[in-house]
Structure formats: structure tokens, C-alpha cells
């Protein structure tokens, strides 16, 4: 396998995310980076995977990157142009393996805020709200969070808990009534890949990117990340992966952002 000598952080992120996706599984995706990661997985190691969009598109042959999770690109030559009730019910019944989320804030248990910064009543900044995020985070077997990591975004306490991670720790999701064995699986940032500690359910470093130090990881977090002695350094994108990424997004809608 030949690795690319030069690559951008976004390209690396897309490749790292695509490696997490297994063949023969269902992906509930948003637009932007998750979309590219899923398309890359489909064109490399996961050809028999199914892409589903929250607004009702199921299994499209995507000719160009969608702008919205509901635009006509999301059901172009699809197996079904359905409804939100249909795909959300599929998620609730256990059909969706992976769901992708973005976040303005994340806490040590993988809980997410996309609603407000500051007080809810008179917010410093009003963000769009849950959208489908709470549903994806509640119902998919595994959720993958893609976000930028820094002290303002990785916080000990969220301003607002929009979407459930492991709530206050082990067993809390089930206690709240959420479906069993679900929850955040990975968090991918510009510095590395994280999972959740088996016992404490706290954010744990799995991989850091080439050139990223442990100091960088710690300095870009407002809470203590579990750092095991043995963790990996991510492989850079391969030349093939890089080529496919640019075939998927020739205009650089996501890759140049």
C-alpha cells in the first residue's frame, strides 16, 4: 500500500472515519464529511453497505455530493424515496448500525450539545437544535462523532445536553430507557480518534495522527482524556484513497472547507 506524502487534515479525517465502517452494514449519514467518509468506504472496503438519510432517502447512487440530507441527490436512483417516519422507525427497530453526528460541545461521556451556548432562555449563541441528532444518538447501534477539538468544545459540563452519549456513565442509558447496547462508538477530531473506556465510559484515546503529540491532545481538551499506555498512530491516507476522495468531491465542497 502506497501512502500519500502530502495530505490535508480533512482528507485524513475522511479516511480514518471510513476505516471504521464495516462492509454489509447500514450507515445513517449527514452531509459534509460523514457523507464523503461513507462514499469512500463504499468505494473501497465496504461495497455492500447501505446509506440511509433521515429525510427518507434509502440506498441512492449518489451522482454528486448532496448539500442537504433531504435534497434530491440523497434519493437519486435510490432503492426507496421514503419518509422520515419510515427511516426513523427502522433506526428504532435496530436496523441502523452506524450514525454520524457533529457537535458544538462534547463532554467526557460523549454527550453532545448542538442547541445553545449559554442559558437556554437568553442564549449567548443559539444553535439549530437537535434536528435528527438526538434520534440518531438514541437509536443507532453505534454513533460516530466528527468534530473539531479544543478547550471550548471538549468541556467537562455541557451548556445543554441535546443528544445522549453515555449520560452520567455506565448503565445510565439503559436506566433512562434508551435501547440497550447503543451509544457513542468513536469520536474523530483533527488530532486523533477516541473511544470510550469499557468500565468508566469516559473518552479514551485510541489513535493520534502522525505528528500529533500527547501534549497536543491534552492541551486541546477542557477535561481529562483517558490516555492508555498503548495507543496507535493513524496511518496516513493512501494514494488510492486520496484519488477517490477527489473523485467524490471534485469541487472541494467539503475537502476544501
Amino acid at each position: 500500500m502506497e501512502y500519500a506524502e502530502e495530505y490535508t487534515a480533512t482528507e485524513l479525517l475522511a479516511c480514518v472515519a471510513s476505516h471504521l465502517l464495516e462492509n454489509g452494514k447500514t450507515f445513517f449519514v449527514g452531509t459534509g464529511l460523514p457523507m464523503i467518509a461513507c462514499m469512500l468506504a463504499q468505494r473501497t472496503h465496504a461495497p455492500d453497505s447501505l446509506i440511509i438519510f433521515e429525510a427518507g432517502g434509502i440506498g441512492p447512487k449518489i451522482p454528486a455530493l448532496p448539500i442537504s440530507v433531504g435534497d434530491s441527490r440523497t434519493f437519486h436512483k435510490a432503492v426507496s424515496a421514503s419518509t422520515m417516519h419510515d427511516v426513523m422507525s427502522a433506526a428504532q427497530s435496530g436496523y441502523i448500525d452506524y450514525g454520524f453526528l457533529g457537535a458544538a460541545q462534547l463532554d467526557p461521556y460523549g454527550n453532545i450539545n448542538t442547541t445553545v451556548i449559554g442559558e437556554h432562555r437568553r442564549p449567548k449563541a443559539r444553535l439549530p437544535g437537535s434536528g435528527g441528532a438526538n434520534d440518531i444518538g438514541s437509536l443507532c447501534w453505534n454513533t460516530i462523532v466528527l468534530m473539531r477539538q479544543d478547550k471550548r468544545r471538549f468541556v467537562e459540563k455541557l451548556d445543554f445536553l441535546t443528544t445522549p452519549g453515555y449520560l452520567n456513565g455506565p448503565g445510565e442509558r439503559e436506566k433512562a430507557g434508551l435501547p440497550e447496547n447503543t451509544g457513542p462508538y468513536r469520536v474523530i477530531t483533527q488530532l486523533g480518534v477516541y473511544g470510550f473506556h469499557e468500565e468508566s465510559k469516559r473518552l479514551t484515546l485510541l489513535e493520534r495522527y502522525p505528528g500529533v503529540t500527547l501534549q497536543d491532545i491534552k492541551e486541546h481538551s477542557g477535561f481529562e482524556i483517558v490516555i492508555p499506555e498503548h495507543h496507535n498512530v493513524s496511518a496516513p491516507p493512501t494514494i488510492d484513497e486520496q484519488r477517490i476522495l477527489h473523485e467524490i468531491d471534485p469541487e472541494g465542497m467539503v475537502l476544501k472547507k
Partner: peptide, 18 residues
């Protein structure tokens, strides 16, 4: 009945009931 919103502030600020 549904299995969303549970355990979150989204629920606390909603008109749903657990």
C-alpha cells in the same frame, strides 16, 4: 410512545413525558 429524547435536556425542554 418512542425511545428518543430520553435522558437529555432536549427532553426537559420538550412537551414529552417519560
Amino acid at each position: 410512545p418512542s425511545r428518543v429524547l430520553l435522558g437529555t435536556d432536549t427532553f426537559k425542554h420538550s412537551s414529552a413525558k417519560k
